[in-house]
Design a protein around this nucleic acid. Structure first.
Lengths: 141, 141
DNA sequence: TATTTAAATGCAACTTAGTTGCAAATATAA
DNA sequence: TTATATTTGCAACTAAGTTGCATTTAAATA
């Protein structure tokens, strides 16, 4: 695992201090192939850290382009790492996401591009979110 | 205004009782060209009706295909009438929606079709939501 | 290595969205 | 007009997210 080094670099390169909590949060994201919400993280963290701290870590990561918002279903906002297949910059909203109705997990569909569309000049589009819903393989049976 | 007759028919044809509250809720949807959330409706209703009743009316309308979910931004779920340009059946998710970051209003983009996409067989897609975000004309200045 | 300080954390308290159970009220069919 | 299933209101709850403030800590620098 050289995740440790990676995480250190990631935080440092964005001018964020490397704290145990932030490190553990980023490790969680690296260890999962689906998006996580603040409460998912609180539940998975070893020590019982305050919800507020997790919310603040997530916002901060989002602002710095380390995480992107993957979906906002009824179970709260889920975030995903701007990772492997994401370009280093402008990772937001480039791919679609899939939310399972059964387990409520959110997956990045990194090969499904968010389509570019023409919209009435009445609206200035700054973000696009393309979220599919249904059942994932695990919940299929 | 023959909205009244229309509303009566709509409720009756879905086996829903025509109550003052439901009538007023549907009138509100007919009078607005953007989507409304439960709290929007509570605020706009003349008499101070209970939030719970509004939530229940909305769920019921959604179940019966009278309303569709337009967006779920941080300000709560917004609903829109399955109206004029919606086909009478299967109105859900057929078009994109636009959420303004400034006023948080959600508009139906009835001419922007939600694209059909190919997804890994790992996922069974049952719903699709295509939501654009940005600034609407009113908030432009 | 010790000191300093801006940034990060924890705590308490709050807001807002949404839900559930149950009793009272009411729309409609008979 | 009455009977009944539906709808409504109330109270109480959960869960997500936020804010202010005091305390702690990472890391720059002396």
């Amino acid at each position: 695992m050289d995740n440790m080094k990676l995480i250190g670099d990631l935080l440092h390169s964005h001018g964020l201090k490397k704290t145990p909590i932030r490190t553990e949060v980023l490790e969680l994201f690296m260890d999962h192939d689906f998006a996580l919400s603040a409460s998912d993280i609180v539940a998975k963290m070893t020590a019982g850290h305050d919800r507020v701290t997790i919310y603040r870590a997530l916002s901060s990561f989002e602002e710095h382009g380390i995480l992107h918002r993957a979906s906002e279903d009824g179970q709260g906002t889920k975030y995903a790492l701007c990772g492997h297949k994401c370009p280093d910059e402008q990772h937001t909203d480039k791919h679609a996401h899939f939310v399972c109705d059964e387990c409520h997990q959110t997956y990045c569909l990194e090969d499904v591009q968010v389509p570019e569309v023409e919209v009435s000049s009445e609206f200035t589009v700054e973000r696009t979110s393309f979220v599919l819903g249904g059942i994932c393989r695990q919940c299929q049976q």
